[in-house]
Simulated scan of single mutants.
Amino acid sequence: MGARTLSTAGMLSISTGLVGLSWLGPDASTTAIVWPLVLLGVGGVPFHPPSNSATLNTIPPEHLRVANGFLSMARARADSSWTPFWGGNSCGLSTGGNHGTARRGGVCDARG
């Protein structure tokens, strides 16, 4: 299977997940939210490696170290920017939506 086929399949999965998320309303169940997120994650697996490879193949050899470092930094930045979002949402889901009202000393306890 070629890189273009993998990238196309991954992008279709990502697009389908984004469309699925856009159709959700405020009363969507957890299950209805999870399946588009799974499609987003599954779509990233075949999409990102060929995309990164194609990007780095356009860089002159003397600049590859800088370009690869920039790509790694951008990936780390994207990963770290989602941490507060997922942490806040997991606390909301684990406490039934009552943020900061978990048992005292718990992970989501707002009082510390």
Rank of each mutant, 00 (worst) to 15 (best):
A78Y: 14
S29R: 03
P49D: 08
C108T: 08
A67D: 14
V38W: 09
E62K: 12
W23G: 00
M1I: 07
L37V: 10
R104P: 07
P49S: 12
T31M: 05
L64M: 15
L37M: 11
L71K: 10
T83Y: 10
L71R: 09
S22D: 03
P36T: 00
N52G: 13
H63R: 14
R77Q: 12
F85L: 13
G25E: 03
P50L: 04
N98P: 01
G96Q: 05
V45M: 05
S22Q: 02
R75A: 13
I33G: 07
A67Q: 12
L64H: 15
S53R: 10
S72P: 13
A54C: 11
R65A: 15
F47P: 01
T55L: 13
A3V: 00
L6E: 02
G100F: 06
A78L: 14
P50T: 03
S22W: 00
T83N: 07
S22T: 01
T95D: 02
N57G: 13
H63N: 13
S13N: 05
A110L: 05
G97N: 05
L71E: 09
A28R: 08
V34H: 13
M73C: 04
L6I: 01
A76R: 11
L56E: 14
N68Y: 10
G17C: 07
A28H: 02
W35F: 12
S72H: 15
A74M: 15
G106S: 14
A78N: 09
G20E: 03
T31H: 06
T8G: 03
G10L: 00
T31K: 09
G88C: 08
M1E: 13
E62H: 15
L71W: 11
I59K: 09
H48A: 15
G43P: 02
G88W: 11
L64S: 15
M11H: 03
R111E: 03
I14A: 05
R77G: 10
E62V: 13
F47D: 00
G17F: 06
G10Y: 00
A54E: 12
M73A: 09
C91I: 04
A67Y: 09
T5Y: 03
G2A: 05
G92E: 08
G17V: 01
N52M: 15
L64I: 12
A110H: 12
G44P: 04
G2F: 04
V45G: 02
L18V: 02
A74L: 15
R103N: 04
G96S: 04
I59R: 05
L71S: 11
M11R: 03
